[in-house]
Amino acid sequence: MQMSDTNPQAAFWNSDAGHAWVENQAMLDHMFQPFEALLADAVRAGEQVLDVGCGTGATTLATARRVGPAGHSTGIDISAPMIATARIRAAQASLPASFACADAQHHAFEPAAFDAVVSRFGVMFFADPAAAFANLRRAARATGRLHLYAWRGAAENPFMTAAERAAAPLVALPPRLPGQPGQFAFADAAVVLAILQAAGWQEIRVDAVDVPCAFPAAGLDGYVRRMGPLGRVLPTLDEPRRHAVIDRVRGAFEPFVQGETVRYTAACWRITARADVIKG
């Protein structure tokens, strides 16, 4: 695994942020379940699939089910705690899946090994996105396909920013820096297109899609306390201030709660491409 002390993303995803995803794995899988189906539909029986930024493995396992015993799905992620969980899940499910704990930007993939490269919100964190996608293209066969989902802008995703907007008057949160690796790093479709062109991908499409997502309202408290920028700051606050922030933030999520279910729309880009031009 290429994880060094100079890689901020490696440090981040191997700290409490990675453990928070493991702790909330069931809720997050429920929330993002529609993307499992979308990515499974993008692969075929018998194929070799690479799942980039696979997290705790839900999309890797979904594609492994689709490719079946004649194929294989490989998940790669920089987070050791999430990869450990993914490996346990794959073993329990007895699926054709394996995992690498590594940085996909630098990892020495076998050349021309994969029929499809897929990702659910896992490609916005590279230090050098063009270099990363060039590495992924080398790992794909000439007929290999790219099929990714990435967030559009923060303004189009009010659920994803509700906690920090509500908490802002009460506590200082880490800023989201434009142009830096992070959740909304691919917000600009023109930037995404330029990255993939520079990396050598062909037949590129960047299409806006809105995906309805939902999870049980019982999981909202864990989401507020552990996920996103607020989840990283809450443990540093004294108890009275922490309770004041949580109470304020809970109110900000009320518009998304419908009975026993939290519902929101994920405003995304569906990004597709081919490793080479298909002739004939």
Rank of each mutant, 00 (worst) to 15 (best):
K279M: 10
L95M: 06
A134C: 15
G57W: 03
V49H: 01
A97Q: 02
R65H: 15
S98L: 02
A275I: 01
S4I: 02
T74L: 06
I76K: 00
V224I: 13
T272G: 05
D77V: 01
H147F: 13
A26D: 14
N24E: 12
S79M: 03
A91W: 10
M227S: 11
T60G: 01
R176V: 13
Q9L: 14
F184P: 00
D16N: 13
I246L: 10
R138M: 12
P69W: 07
Q92W: 15
A168Q: 13
I76C: 07
P96N: 08
P111F: 10
Q48L: 15
A162C: 05
A100W: 15
M3D: 09
P69V: 12
G71I: 03
M27V: 08
F35E: 00
T56A: 10
E203T: 15
F184G: 03
M227V: 08
L177F: 13
P229I: 07
G219Q: 06
A90K: 05
A93R: 10
V206I: 07
A113F: 07
Q258M: 08
G46T: 05
L50Q: 00
T272L: 03
A97K: 02
S73N: 09
T56C: 06
R232C: 11
A194G: 14
R205I: 14
Q180F: 13
R225L: 05
P216D: 09
L237V: 03
D188T: 09
F125V: 04
